[in-house]
């Protein structure tokens, strides 16, 4: 068949045709399509779409100028700068340490490694308020860790360093849990092939394994960063919440709400929502990348 052939059905299976997934065939066979889709859409609309529509509609009360003046307000800018830099820094640190931890948990066997593995999920499971007061106590100048740094004049709690520590805590599992399955599934023969070609183990790790991890690393980094930017509970206790210095964006949204400045709160909230959507898009792209690699 030439490229100019009219697009009418031909007999037989065209080249590189992949049969439709069985579920394509089952539209009429399995019941419950309308009920399940109807319920799903209704639920999603009520719980997510209508509330988010309210968020998207609210900032424009005082027009574009009102929205803009909120965003360019010095205190808002300072909080955004703080939230994004501490979240970014925490995600970068988590990327490195998380990859090392994932590596150790999949490759090495020593007493207690399984328990350690289970505890990686603690920041998911531990309520953020609990983590928040624990970190605050731990890193205060009279706390177990804080007191080690106090003699050098380094204050951790109630400073941006404290925020950074809290964000490292909440973000760490995302990197470990993104990287770990890919590392565990890595074909041992590929690695052995590199070794037989004369690569040293560290060369194999960096030149053969690491590139294969790239999509998982991107996913882990993005999830860790997304969670960190929006984090509230584990941060507010340790942050100190000083305007312009240690006030994170979510805290500022709450303050604006308490001042009945709904439009202002919604303006800042909308920026953070758009940010979440961008992150989600990056994660989806990374997953596609990973999937295509898996098929190649």
């Amino acid at each position: 068949m030439t490229a100019s052939a009219p697009a009418q059905p031909t007999n037989g299976v065209p080249e590189n045709f992949t049969p439709p997934h069985p579920s394509l065939h089952t539209n009429r066979v399995l019941p419950g399509f309308k009920v399940s889709l109807g319920f799903t859409i209704a639920y999603v609309s009520l719980i997510v779409l209508i509330p988010l529509a309210a968020l998207a509609a609210r900032p424009w009360e005082h027009g574009w100028a009102g929205f803009w003046s909120v965003l360019t307000d010095g205190r808002v800018l300072a909080s955004l700068r703080l939230s994004f830099t501490t979240a970014g820094a925490a995600a970068v640190l988590n990327l490195f340490v998380g990859t090392i931890i994932a590596w150790v948990l999949t490759r090495y066997k020593f007493p207690g490694v399984k328990i350690l593995d289970a505890f990686v999920d603690l920041p998911f499971a531990l309520p953020t308020a609990v983590a928040g007061i624990a970190l605050c106590t731990l890193y205060a100048t009279n706390g177990w860790v804080g007191s080690l740094f106090a003699p050098f004049g380094i204050k951790i709690a109630y400073t941006p360093i404290g925020i950074f520590i809290a964000l490292v805590f909440v973000g760490l599992p995302f990197v470990v849990r993104s990287v770990q399955p890919v590392l565990a599934d890595f074909d041992a023969e590929v690695e052995e092939a590199a070794l037989t070609l004369g690569a040293a183990p560290w060369q194999t790790a960096i030149r053969v394994i690491l590139p294969g991890l790239a999509p998982a690393l991107l996913t882990g980094f993005s999830l860790s960063m997304a969670r960190a930017v929006g984090e509230y509970g584990s941060v507010i206790f340790i942050a100190g919440n000083m305007p312009y210095i240690s006030e994170i964006t979510p805290q500022l949204i709450i303050i604006k709400l308490q001042e009945y400045d709904y439009a202002g709160a919604a303006s800042v909230g909308l920026i953070m929502l758009l940010w979440s959507i961008v992150i989600l898009a990056i994660i989806n792209a990374a997953q596609m990348w990973l999937f295509q690699r898996g098929r190649a």
Partner: peptide, 17 residues
């Protein structure tokens, strides 16, 4: 979406409604 959204936003939207 809720995986990447800030919990504060998840509360804020109900206040706006």
């Amino acid at each position: 979406l809720p995986f990447t959204i800030s919990p504060v936003i998840a509360g804020l939207v109900w206040m706006l409604l």
